[in-house]
Amino acid sequence: MVSIYNSIMPVVQRLAESGWLPESLKYAFVFNSLVAALILGPVLGGIGTLVVTKRLAFFSQAIGNAALTGVAIGIILGESYTSPYVSLFSFCIIFGMAMIFTRNRTKMTTDTLIAIFLCISLAVGACILLYVTAKVNVHVLDNVLFGSILTVNELDLNVLFVISFICILCGLGFYNRMVLSSFNPNLARVRGIKVIFLDYLFILMVTIITVASVKIIGAILVEALLVIPAASARNLSRSMRGFFFYSAAFSTLSCVIGIVIPMELEIPVPSGGAIILVAAFFFAATTAIRQLRRAYPALGKI
């Protein structure tokens, strides 16, 4: 993986220097963040269609908050504060699993349960952060919350590669079954689908991709990229094909544009914020198109 990456980078840098590609690409961190965006975009967009279908938008928000606590725990345990992956993954996975376990056991409605877990995780995070601020500059946390492409390194890219690969495999293999389980669990079980197992697997997918996106998009904003592109795609599409591919395209474009434009125009904004603003633009545009199509049905055929 690293060797492929190392062989592509010099080529891109040479092209950037000779003027074929934007000049900023000659910097390693720009290249890193664009590679991350190109991997993350389609994966988040694709998983987003499932998040929207299964109505679990707020769940990913809760995981994002848990990521903050995960980072705080990592710093306390002495992990590097720029990439405390062990604590991040462990805490978020335990958190996600605990949430779905409680839901299955108590039959509590999902929104109540998510609200409870979200608050607990924020409370724990807030308490631990008090200790953390004594150790490191609290602004380090901005990077975790809102994303910072400047700090994306090879470790982050490798984590992203592996996690995306796992998510793509699970996502493609179980897509239909995950959707059916949410449509009618009884019907899904009659058809031999292991509904509970897929529930856990899906939560695991959302959790690990959220953690892997923390560096680029930020813990608080990952949810937006899981929901907004899929919602925009829903505005335009009539079938699952459009839904999935539009969503993946919107998400990828948001990531790339959100990284490139602030850099080219030298606007100092966090990458996560810029990415989500681009995604929001797509949502506004597609909503307008949808309204126009409703008002003038002839446009729908174009």
Binding site: T53, N176, F183, R234, R238, S239
Partner: peptide
Amino acid sequence: FDRTLPVTVNNFMTMICQNMPAF
């Protein structure tokens, strides 16, 4: 399901029959 979801009758039947994603 959410009634605004872009899932057609054919998509639904495909999901019933095969593992390859209906999209």
